[in-house]
Structure formats: C-alpha cells, structure tokens
Design a protein around this nucleic acid. Structure first.
Length: 887
RNA sequence: GGGAGUAUAGCUCAGCCGGGAGAGCGUCCGCCUCACACGCGGGAGGUCACGGGUUCGAGCCCCGUUGCGCCCACCA
C-alpha cells in the first residue's frame, strides 16, 4: 500500500525520524576496507563552548554534500567528527561563570578549576554536535573525538617531545603579545589590527651638559618610564654631534645615551625616537644591537609595576594621562597632534595587546614550513579557489616563530618538568621519575598550557589514532578534502599542513575547499555583539534542514562571502515542496499499476527527450561536483527538476497517464517518470537529504520491485549512459516546445481567455516536422488548449484573420476571428518582424565578414548559416502574413 | 605600505573552454487547469563600473582609472 503523501511537504518530524534510521542502520559508519577506495573528510572541530551558527551550517553542509556524494559513488566515505577544547574561549567562559558566583579561578585553584572545566565539557560539549545532527550531517559519530581526549593528548605530547628533541621547540626570552585582560600570551595570528584615532605627543628630553633639548614624538608616552635610550639616524646631520651624549629621562631621572641606528626614519617626526626595549618590538631589537637595558614597567594586568616609580599600580591608560600632565607641567610637552594609527588587539576580547618580553615556548618555523610551501607549490595540496595560494604564501614567506605557551589552565599542559633540586629541565611524554642529573625524584611541571591550535594542528591524524599506527590511519590518511572558512587559514590550515608533513611525512589532505562568511541580509558580518545573528536551528524548525542547506549552497561561488535572506530560504523550501508534489503526482499515477521496463520502440519521443536531458544533467552535475562547484551543480539540478521535468515533461505526459486505453504508452510514461524522478532524487540527495530519502522510500514501498535500496543515501549514484543519448528526439521536442511557447505567447498577447479552446493548424513544407507534431498531438493539443489540430504542407484554406505563430520549422495558425482585433495581431506580427530584422542584420553582418569566415571555427560558421536560413524563412512568413492581413 | 577580491535586471547573486546576457525574489497581465497558489501561463526590466587594448568576435583575456568592502604589515 502506498503511503499517503500530504499536499504540502512538512519537514517536521520526518527529519528526526529519518536521521534516527540512518544512525540505527549505521550508514554513517566507515571501517577500513581494502576492497573499497576511501574518501575522508575531517570535520573542523567546533568549540565546545559553541552554539551552531550559520558559518557552521555552511561549513558542514558543504562537507555533508561531498561525503554523501562520494558515499553514493561507492567510496568508503568517512566523515570524522569531533570537538575542540578551545582553551582560551572555554576558560574565559568558565571564569565568567565563576565570577557570577563571586569566585576567582585563583581562589579555586588549578585542580578544582579543571574539574569545573570538565564538568562544563560534559554538560555543554555535546550541544553543538547534537545541533549538527539537526542539519543532517552524516558523520561517523562512533568515531567522535575531542582535542583533549586521551588519544589526542598522547599525540600532543608525542609531537611536543619530538619537536623539542629536534630543536624545533625551544624556550626563550622574546617579545610576545600579551593580553592584559586574558592575562596570557597570544600568537601573532591572534592579534588583529585596528585603526584607532589617537595622538602623537611631542616631548623633549634635556641633553645633559647643555641647555638644549631633544624633541621626539611618541604614540605611547606612558612607556617613557621604561625608556633606556634615545635614537637618531647615523646619517642625520641635525643630530650627528649628539650621538654618544646623554639625555635625562624626566620623572625617573635616569641618564640615557643617544644612540645612532639605521632603524630611525629621518623623515618621520623630528627624526628622534625614544627607546623602550621592554615594550616595543622595534625598540627591543634596537636595544639588543646597542646593549640597552630592558626595563619592564608593566604588570600582567596592564598596570604599571614597581619600575614605574610613583606610577606603580596605575592602569596603563590612566598613567598615560597622568604622565602627559606631569611632563606638561615640567614644560617638556611640546605639542599634541591628532594621529591615527594601527593598534594590535586581541581577537577574542578586543583588548589592546601589550608587546612584552617574557620567557615563553616557541616552535621554530623556518625549517618546518618548507615542505608545507613545497606541497602547495607542487600541487600535492590544492587550494580551492586557487587565489588562496597568494594568501597562503604571503604568510609562509613571512613566517615567524610560533609562540605556543599560554598562561591558561584549560588545555594541554606543557610536558616540561623541572627538577626541584637541581633545576634541570626534562621534556618528556610522561612525568620523569628520577632526575638524570642529580637523581632527585621531585619535579615541577611547567605551569603553562599549549595554544589550542597546537592540538588542532594534529587533528587529521590524531583523530585516526596517531601516534599508534592504526588501520584507520593507514587506510584513511591522507584525507581527501578539508572544508573550512578562509578566515582560519593561518590559525589552522597551514599548521595542519606542516604538522602533517613533519609527523606523517605526507600531506594531511589533498584539497582545501574554502568558503566565505555568511553575512546578514544587509551584508554585515553576523555577530553576537551586533545581535544580527540568525539561528540555523530556528530556520530548520520553520523551513526544514533541506531548505536551509540548499539556500546556503546555491547562488554563491567558492571562497566568496554570501548573504543570508529568508527569501532565499523560502525559495529553497518551495523547491522541496515542488519535488514533493511532483513525486506525489507520479506516485498517484503509479498506484495499482506495475511499472515494467518498456521495449525501446515503446518509448515516445518525449520520453526519450527527457531521458536524454536527464542523462546530460547526470554527467554535468557529477562533473561540477567533482570540481567542487557545488552551487553550479545545485542550480542545474533545480533547473532540470523544475523547468524540464515538472513544467514540461509531466505536463506533456498527462494525457497519456489519463488515458488507460493505451496501456503500453501509459507504462512507458510511468517508467520514464519513475526513472527520471529517481535519478533526480539521487542527484539532489546530497543537498536535500531528508525530502529525497522520504520520497525514495515511499516509491520503494509503492512498487516493491526489489531493485531498490532501503535508503537513497546508500543507493548508487547515477552515471552517464550512452544508450540514453537521443539528440534527434531532443531536437524534435524542442521544436514543439517552441511552437507551444509561441502559441501561448500569442494567445496571451491577444487576450484570448485561458479557457477558450481554439483549433490549430500546423503548416510546414517538411513532412518530418509534421510527423513530429502528429506524434506529439496528444500533449500539443493540451498545452495550447486546442480541441483539434490539423496538419498541412501549405496554408491554403487558412482564414486570413487567423493568429499566426511563426517558428523556425513550422507555422501554427489559430483561427480566432471573432475574438481578435486584427490591428493587434498586426502589431504583434510587426513586433516579431522587427525582432527578426535585428537577428538578420546581426547574422548577415557576421557571415559577410571575410575575417569571420576565414578565422572562426567551421562549426560556428555552419551554425550561423543555419540560423540565418531559419530567420530568413521566418521573416518571409511574417511578411506574407502581414501583407495579407493588411491587404 | 603591500596583497587578493568585487563592481552584471529594482534587490541578492550565477555566468564553465571568449561565440546571440541568466536565476531567485520583486514588479506587471491573466489563471483556484483533477501534483503543487510554497502553484501555473505570459510580459516588462541590463551601456555587464569607467577608459584603452588584444581578437573575426570580449561580461569573460591584457593595461589603466574609480567605487566598495577584505586580508596582511614592528615607522615612533
């Protein structure tokens, strides 16, 4: 018995139960199997603090489309999911929660704090993955991983020790980026630059032994507390004499040298720079060259420390104001200029980052990055779209060592231990038992944790079991595609690439498919602070996951940002409903009938036409998808289903379905409908998994011919079939379509009431053309609303006042004397005449161009000649018709 | 200061190898035609940002200009 299909497709309820079925049947699960080719995608692990947003929805829809496509193509498809501990994001979150309870993390202590973190993970870590399920994501949940699970933890320690032993990880005093709010170091990649309106303060220091002053400009007057020199350019004649002299640092009353260094730009400001080696990267370098003292004047929270004298304890910005005021009072403030400059801010909390010198852990990049550069250069790894390579190389070419230590508690603790007796440092995967130097047995582990990206860099192989040499690792690595946003290319993509080459000796993935941002309808970035974010779950609830997925994929090219709009969601929802109803129609007509494979001669030309069209769509869509042109493929499927299958084929086939006298013809139509529908559903399935599955399973129940799978998601992807190529039928049906469109247009232009039936005569000198029309008479009559159609080789007997529809192959006459205003018919034909004139002009110009004839390809010339002949014929008809109407 | 984008219908965007400008939404006209009004049929609407160039032929390729955002960058 057939299932009753509702008139309107309602995704609610259906989606969840289908997803449950897929899970129960283990369709998402993949095991290494040498007899099949693997296809692997590792999911960019969402943060455990995260809530599903449109970016995730887009990212995961793309991955699901690819994995479902490949699975249907017969690959052993693994989509490896998991979540990221997101060290800083999570820690900040938990600190906030504690703060609300009046507790600080220090009060709680490290151990208790970590317990809270794990509690949080337990409670909220599954939230985002359950939201991903709502999207229809077909990932292998049995293999779900977490960046801080036991295996990933092992991988992290393994990599750390390996790199340390190779000298690629080191500890050193360097200039780092410090976030005074998060109170941790951050990497260069985490620093954003923001243009800020500020001032340039011109200040002067007294030159010792003279009455003169040296004037300079600074954007950070408060750092003067840590000044240890003043610098000028060695070539600068204005200051040559002063080099080697000393100036007096006011407030601190410190004598400092005037040094000469190329770094100083003579053109900028006064050509003099104050030097604060502890708080400016350039000054730090300059300080090293001139052996200057490094005086840190700042505490970790951004307040001035004891080195700042009386300003100790004051916030950095309060200190700035106070110091400027004091300098002014001392008569040392020359002037204040408005000045806009770039300020580094922390990407998480947007606090102005403080450059500081601290002892931290770093990954030496120069050597590690080489294979990563090579791999992309030689095409082992392909970036899509390929212009991302520029961005990639820009980063690799200017790479600096990666600061990996964080003053956070939630994360992988650095596996470095210090002997509490002799202070020997041991880097080891597990805590050492005995100090190799002094034999002592007590150690202190480094308190810092690793940058969260250190563990995600290992994700493509750590999730497959590395450092164990598992079957999964051997079988699924390297993975095939990585799908991600272009915004994390530096954080993640590059780091996975060099980690893969370093640890596995092989690239982590063969292709990186980048997508853009999902913006709001106005083009603004969706963000929590703007409150303009749209919750994908709400959209799913209202329109269905299929609609959301389809909306996100259509109408945008790889790497480009896109806008979210409900209009587009509605359009996608309407499309799902369209397929639903087309299927409903087909099922309705199949009811109670057994559809058999018809003989080749039983198929009507129109059947062969749609099969031929379908065949081409199958190969086009497959090709587009192989090339990651997901949006283009989606548009082609949409167009085929709606505009060819529904608007034309179903309408053309209706008269045959309603006429049960001709069982053979009816069967051929039903067979074709079913075949085309199933192929369409399969092509669409990666995009709209739910509605296609629901329909597919219903068809199966209806016919139970045994040739069908339990699920469309494990059914075979359609393939191009030479035997379904029918160019002649395509041509003849397109000709009839042209005539139908012409008649409809004419009727509409002449205001013929839609219900008014009118006979038609098809006139053509070509008997083959007439034959085609005759074969299609049943539907031709229905589509042009003619009770009767007659055929003739000439137009004798056609009344002068009939409507005439001129097409390239035939003219259709419709006597409508009583209904039409002749002058309107004349106007209509004159319009057509004008159009044809234009075409003839263009075509003639082309064909009379010697150079065109000489240089254009033959096929193009032949094509153009054919068009010209057709236009000439049409023009002749139109002219004749006009003269007889006017006469 | 570098780099990579983008500019196409009223709006949002597609446009593969260079060969007669497309979609969705909106708009106008007409339809509750026995799958679907989340629909059907028919229209209107474009100097493909601007200026050069290559080519038989340019939305597409080359050079330049302008507008718009984006990324990167240690000139105080």
């Amino acid at each position: 018995m057939s299932k009753e299909l509702a008139k309107t497709y309602d995704p609610k309820g259906i989606e969840d139960s289908l997803y449950k079925k897929w899970i129960e049947k283990k369709y998402f699960h993949a095991e290494p199997d040498k007899s099949k080719k693997p296809f692997t995608i590792v999911m960019p692990p969402p943060n455990i603090t995260g809530q599903l947003h449109m970016g995730h929805a887009l990212d995961n829809t793309m991955q699901d489309i690819l994995i479902r496509f490949k699975r249907m193509q017969g690959y052993n498809a693994l989509w490896q999911p998991g979540t990221d501990h997101a060290s800083i994001a999570t820690e900040v979150r938990i600190i906030d929660t504690l703060k609300a309870q009046g507790i600080s993390k220090e009060e709680l202590g490290r151990e208790k704090f970590l317990e809270k973190c794990w509690e949080w993970k337990k409670e909220y870590g599954g939230r985002i993955t359950s939201q991903l399920r709502k999207l229809g994501s077909s990932c292998d949940w049995d293999r779900e991983r977490f960046t801080m699970d036991e295996g990933c933890n092992k991988a992290v320690n393994e990599v750390f020790v390996r790199l340390y032993d190779k000298g690629l990880i080191y500890k050193g005093h360097k200039m780092i980026n410090w976030c005074p709010v998060c109170r941790t170091t951050i990497s260069d990649a985490e620093v954003l630059h923001e243009s800020q309106a500020s001032h340039l303060w011109h200040i002067k220091y007294k030159i010792i032994g003279t009455d003169d002053y040296l004037t300079f400009a600074t954007t950070r007057p408060e750092t003067m507390l840590g000044d240890t020199a003043v610098a000028v350019n060695p070539e600068d004649d204005r200051y040559k004499d002063l080099v080697g002299k000393k100036v007096m640092l006011p407030i601190m009353n410190r004598e400092m040298p005037v040094v000469a260094d190329d770094y100083v730009d003579m053109e900028f400001g006064t050509g003099v720079v104050k030097i604060t080696p502890a708080h400016d990267p350039n000054d730090f370098e300059l300080g090293k060259r001139h052996d200057l003292e490094v005086i840190n004047i700042m505490n970790d929270d951004g307040t001035i420390n004891e080195n700042g004298g009386k300003y100790a304890g004051m916030d950095r910005y309060e200190a700035r104001d106070a110091i400027v005021k004091e300098l002014d009072e001392m008569g040392l403030l020359v002037k204040i200029e408005d000045y806009t400059h770039e300020v580094g801010i922390h990407d998480r909390c947007h606090t102005t980052v403080e450059p500081l010198v601290k002892e931290q852990w770093f990954v030496r990049m120069d050597e590690l990055i080489r294979p990563a550069v090579e791999g992309v250069k030689n095409g082992e790894i392909r970036l899509v779209p390929d212009n991302m390579e520029k961005t990639y190389f820009n980063w690799t070419d200017n790479i600096r060592d990666w600061c990996i230590s964080r003053q956070l508690w939630w994360g992988h603790r650095i596996p470095a231990y210090t002997c509490s007796k002799c202070k020997e440092m041991i880097v080891s995967k597990t805590a050492p038992k005995v100090c190799p130097k002094c034999g002592h047995t007590e150690f202190e582990q480094d308190p810092d944790t690793l940058d969260t990206w250190f563990s995600s860099a290992l994700w493509p192989f750590s999730t497959l079991g590395w450092p164990e040499n598992t079957d999964e690792l051997k079988y699924f690595y390297p993975t095939d595609v990585l799908v991600t946003g272009y915004d994390i290319i530096f954080f993640w993509v590059i780091r996975m690439i060099f980690s893969g080459y370093e640890q596995m000796g092989k690239e982590p993935f063969r292709t990186v498919l980048f997508h853009g941002l999902v913006r709001d309808a106005k083009g603004q970035k969706m963000s929590k602070s703007l409150g303009n974010g749209i919750d994908p779950l709400e959209v799913i609830d209202k329109y269905g996951a299929d609609a959301l997925r389809f909306m996100l994929i259509t109408g945008n090219a790889p790497g480009n940002d896109m806008r979210f709009s409900y209009e587009k969601v509605e359009a996608a929802r309407n499309f799902a409903n369209k397929i639903w109803n087309a299927s409903r129609f087909i099922l309705l007509n199949m009811e109670g009938k057994t559809v058999k494979r018809p003989g080749d001669d039983e198929l009507a030309p129109v059947d062969r036409w749609i099969l031929s069209k379908m065949n081409r769509i199958v190969s086009d869509v497959t090709e587009n998808m192989e090339k990651y042109e997901l949006g283009v493929a989606a548009a082609k499927i949409y167009d085929f289903i709606w505009n060819e299958l529904c608007d034309w084929y179903i309408e053309m086939v209706k008269p045959r379905l309603y006429n049960s006298d001709d069982a053979v013809s009816q069967n051929a139509a039903l067979y074709t409908l079913k075949k085309v529908l199933i192929a369409s559903l399969k092509l669409l399935h990666p995009y709209m998994p739910f509605v296609t599955e629901e329909i597919y399973c219903t068809i199966k129940e209806e016919t139970s011919d045994g040739g069908m799978d339990d699920s469309i998601m494990i059914s075979k992807w359609p393939e191009y079939d030479k035997g379904l190529d029918f160019p002649r039928d395509e041509k003849s049906i397109e000709m009839i379509k042209e005539a139908v469109k012409g008649v409809r247009n004419a009727r509409s232009a002449m205001n013929v009431p839609p219900k008014k039936k009118a006979e038609a005569t098809v006139v053509s000198a070509d008997n083959e053309v007439l034959e085609s029309f005759k074969t299609g008479e049943l539907y031709f009559k229905a589509l042009i609303n003619a009770p009767e159609v007659t055929y003739s080789n000439d137009k004798s007997g056609i009344p002068d006042d009939a409507l005439s529809v001129v097409t390239g192959n035939a003219t259709v006459y419709i006597p409508l004397a009583e209904l039409t205003d002749l002058s309107e018919e004349i106007a209509r034909l004159e319009k057509e005449e004008k159009r044809l004139q234009g075409e003839l002009k263009r075509s003639n110009a082309m064909l009379s161009n010697e150079k065109f004839l000489a240089k254009a390809p033959e096929s193009k010339i032949a094509e153009e000649k054919e068009k010209l002949a057709s236009y000439e014929k049409m023009m002749e008809e139109v002219k004749e018709r006009l003269s007889s109407l006017k006469g």
